[in-house]
Design a protein around this nucleic acid. Sequence first.
DNA 1: ATGCCTCCCCGAGGGAGA
Length: 259
Amino acid sequence: MKIASFNINGIKARGPALVSWLKESNPDVALLQEIKSVDEAFPKETYEDLGYNVETHGQKSFNGVAILSKYPLREIVRGLPGDESDEQARWIEATICASLEIKICCLYLPNGNPLPGPKYDYKLAWMDRLYLKAQELLSSEQTTLMAGDFNIIPQAEDAASPEAWTNDALFKIESRAKFRKILNLGFLDAFRACNEGPGHYSFWDYQAGAWDRNDGIRIDHFLLSPNCSDILTDCKIDSSIRGLEKPSDHVPIWIKLNL
DNA sequence: ATGCCTCCCCGAGGGAGA
């Protein structure tokens, strides 16, 4: 089974590029972030015609996450618990019904810049809520994964120019520590289980020719529970599509599970 | 480089992204 995650930076702008990538890559499940659309405006039929069940958690203009799945989805949860006043659409989870049931969580973690300030505080608080959710997911002992745009550069080797990010919310020791704390609960960074060394990125800024200079960062991740790690067979980043027509600033990352 | 593009809102130009 192939499961992909892709920050598309707007479902309206990315429609054609998303459809051709889905046809080419043919994931069984695709987790989308930054759909930037309300649920009613999401073009569900386009993706249903490609064989996907579609569940969205959108909002006007900003954020928004979605799950496309060739397998039936049940127990859909929209929103990360822990703050009733949080209206930003950054979390959707579902159980996919394949030969094994898998709990799939699609997330768009806050960027956090500028720093210091309320946006950074929101990011750190969101990560504290994510930690509690991660604990709860593990205690269920269900085969579980969390994937999406974490807006975290885990290590210096995950940036082409780490020195440029030292005071950025994506690379601050504080936010990286919260990410590591979640890993330390027992989640595996699937990409690092399957790939070594620097030079692997999932985001290149639109500005200053970042793609042409390969000035990227690795901020889109798959985190697997121990029983999910046991069936991991591969994890790759589809970096080449960053060079195609009208690209997102992110590229897809995918895993393969042995089932 | 507190912003070199691109997205969204809409129908100008500002907020947001990372």
